[in-house]
């Protein structure tokens, strides 16, 4: 077999070398292209994506009440804030917060009474208490996470405890004064 190896391993690049590299390269590109469908099938399917946005009717939520709706498998807190709660959220010194954000950045202007946040504690993913009447709302009147004791205020901002960030505000828009579309 040695004479065969010698022809392949000549000193200069030969037509045979070129053919080897071209064939191996072509096969490699083909393999990667063939692999892609098998990877992409794990991404969300069309029917999963079709359910990626939900519309919520706000008219049934009374002042001071909150509801939890499910969006993309996650809880979304929608809170109809009282005037006192809005003022409380605005009165905070933003510079003193762990995650600096003003209340205005977390709501849609003109709809100050509506707070829409993702109900997942930014610490380790538990669902904080505070949406139901009778729930523990924490020291700042917003939400309280029972897992490791994070306190959120009436703007959903982290005020005390191990969570690093404010409750996330999902992508949403007002379709009318009483209807929002999340996602």
């Amino acid at each position: 077999m040695s004479n065969i190896t010698n022809t392949i391993e000549g000193e200069e690049a030969t037509r045979r070398d070129f053919l080897h590299i071209a064939a191996a390269g072509g096969a490699g590109v083909g393999a990667v292209m063939a692999a892609w469908p098998f990877i992409d099938q794990m991404n969300p399917a069309a029917d999963t994506l079709a359910l990626a946005s939900v519309e919520v009717d706000l008219s049934a939520i009374g002042e001071g009440e909150a509801v939890i709706v499910k969006w993309r498998g996650k809880p979304i807190f929608i809170r109809h804030r009282t005037q006192a709660e809005i003022e409380e959220a605005n009165a905070v010194d933003v510079a003193a917060l762990p995650d600096q954000q003003s209340d205005a950045d977390r709501i849609k202007s003109g709809h100050e009474k509506w707070l829409v946040v993702t109900g997942i504690c930014t610490h380790l993913g538990c669902v904080p208490l505070g949406s139901k009447s009778g729930d523990e709302k924490g020291e700042f009147g917003g939400w309280f996470c029972p897992c490791h004791g994070s306190h959120y205020d009436t703007s959903g901002r982290i005020r005390k405890g191990p969570a690093p960030l404010n409750l996330a505000v999902p992508e949403y828009a007002f379709l009318s004064d009483t209807t929002i579309k999340i996602g």
Binding site: W36, P37, D40, Q41, N43, A45, A46
Partner: peptide
Amino acid sequence: MRDVNYGWLI
């Protein structure tokens, strides 16, 4: 066949 990415192909 309809919804899964490349499901028809696989």
